[in-house]
Design a protein around this nucleic acid. Structure first.
Length: 303
DNA sequence: AAGTCCCGTGGAACTCGTCC
DNA sequence: GGACGAGTTCCACGGGACTT
């Protein structure tokens, strides 16, 4: 029950390489993929394209001693369901969502808004157990994957939707409709179910009026900062220049009915991808990279 | 009082170490 | 070489001390 956390080390892990995300980098990565679409990944070709066009730094790494921009930054595309993880599929496979973007069915901000709203834990791509998580977990650890661990605790959250709902409730309550990085780290990240947004907002209000203060979760700060950076790329949120606060965008206020509707649909447990032991990674990309099943959640730039 | 230099701090961007 | 997350570097900022 909120605000108690199910296990030590709870956070919202997300790639650290998405911080540089902007439309030019995104297009650059996708265009680089088109160079070997349907073929096995030609890292040399892709790296050459990314670096020669000034899209990314060379990222020459000591263990390979060659230009390796792709090695780190391809994570952006798999993280957001544009390609199947190249660990799963040696053949570079763009998803229907990526194709829809390349066909101009939706714009960059519409795509990022959609995929961040749909991003969820448990997550079939975020499956690797980090040594630091296993260490902080304590007790006897016997999970195969991070995905299984989260499914075991019945965690079911979509961070972007949660944050929107928390901000919207703060706004409705006449409170400052912003969240600070500290509040993200101490309050938002503690949610393990979509319905927790309510208690979470109440706890925040309480803490702002000399009430009880919750402890920030130690190792969640960097993830929270990354989440805020990502959310600033959507139509729904504005983030301050110093990255310390996130607020609803004018779009969110103007279109609040439509956004609220999408958020409540995406809060429904039946809308979540479900972890099954069998073939879950492939299954995740089939689900998250799909266009037809997500079309109803698209928020257009001008409604 | 205004300008300049210096240094501590913190965060973002980038790279690295490691596991698999 | 993908994935994760920590380490390193660089830079902006700000306060204080010193100079003009």
């Amino acid at each position: 029950m909120y605000p108690n956390i199910p296990y030590e080390g709870l956070s919202w892990p997300i790639t650290q390489h998405a911080g540089v995300l902007k439309v030019e980098v995104f297009d650059g990565l996708l265009n680089a993929c088109l160079l070997c679409k349907g073929d096995t990944v030609d890292a040399e070709k892709i790296n050459g394209y990314l670096v020669n066009n000034g899209i990314l730094t060379a990222n020459v790494r000591a263990d390979s001693n060659q230009v390796d921009a792709w090695r780190d930054y391809q994570q952006i595309l798999s993280e957001f369901g544009l390609i199947y993880s190249t660990r799963l599929s040696k053949v570079l496979t763009l998803t229907p969502i990526a194709m829809a973007y390349l066909n101009h069915s939706l714009s960059y901000s519409e795509l990022i808004t959609l995929q961040l709203l749909r991003y969820q834990y448990p997550n079939g791509h975020k499956s690797q157990l980090s040594p630091s998580l296993m260490q902080s977990y304590g007790k006897n650890f016997n999970y195969e994957s991070f995905t299984e661990l989260q499914a075991h605790y019945n965690i079911q959250v979509r961070p972007a939707v949660l944050i929107w709902k928390i901000l919207y409730k703060l706004w409705e309550s006449g409170e400052q409709p912003i969240l600070s990085l500290n509040e993200m780290q101490g309050y938002a990240v503690r949610c393990t179910a979509m319905s927790d947004y309510f208690s979470c907002a109440e706890s925040i209000i309480e803490s702002r009026h000399d009430g009880q203060q919750l402890q920030p979760l130690t190792r969640a700060r960097r993830n929270m900062a990354d989440w805020m950076k990502l959310l600033s790329q959507t139509l729904l949120f504005n983030v301050s220049g110093d990255g310390n606060t996130i607020a609803l965008s004018p779009y969110s206020i103007k279109e609040r009915k439509a956004v609220d509707y999408v958020c409540s649909r995406l809060s429904d447990p039946f809308s979540f991808w479900e972890y099954k032991e069998d073939n879950y990674k492939q299954d995740w990309f089939d689900f998250y990279g799909d266009y037809d099943n997500s079309i109803e959640y698209i928020l257009k730039e001008s409604q």
